[in-house]
């Protein structure tokens, strides 16, 4: 079995910001940050599942696994999570 742990973010612990509201949509979800007033569409339900799993997961890799995302697709999802991190939608937290 091959493990793609190339991106350090996969081993980090993150969580959805307390300033963000996620509204379910047919295409995935709409995320609104009340602090910086940024609006972001999450265009895949699996990404929404992963974001929701972040807070209860020890690592990002754990959250992606729980969301049922194949390892081959992790790089694309990590890229999306980094985009969410850039706009403070998700925040790094201390490992539990």
């Amino acid at each position: 079995m091959t493990t793609l742990m190339a991106d350090p973010m996969l081993a980090e612990a993150w969580t959805l910001s307390g300033s963000v509201a996620l509204r379910p949509e047919p295409f995935g979800a709409l995320a609104y940050h009340f602090g910086n007033r940024k609006l972001t569409f999450l265009k895949k339900q699996q990404l929404v599942d992963a974001v929701n799993a972040l807070g209860d997961s020890k690592t990002v890799a754990d959250a992606l696994t729980r969301a049922g995302i194949p390892e081959a697709q992790w790089p694309a999802y990590v890229k999306a999570l980094r985009g969410l991190a850039t706009s403070d939608m998700i925040l790094e937290r201390k490992p539990s």
Binding site: T40, K43, L47, A80, G83
Partner: peptide
């Protein structure tokens, strides 16, 4: 997988 939208212009 994500699309950022600017709402300030509204």
């Amino acid at each position: 997988l994500i699309e950022e939208v600017s709402i300030d212009g509204m």
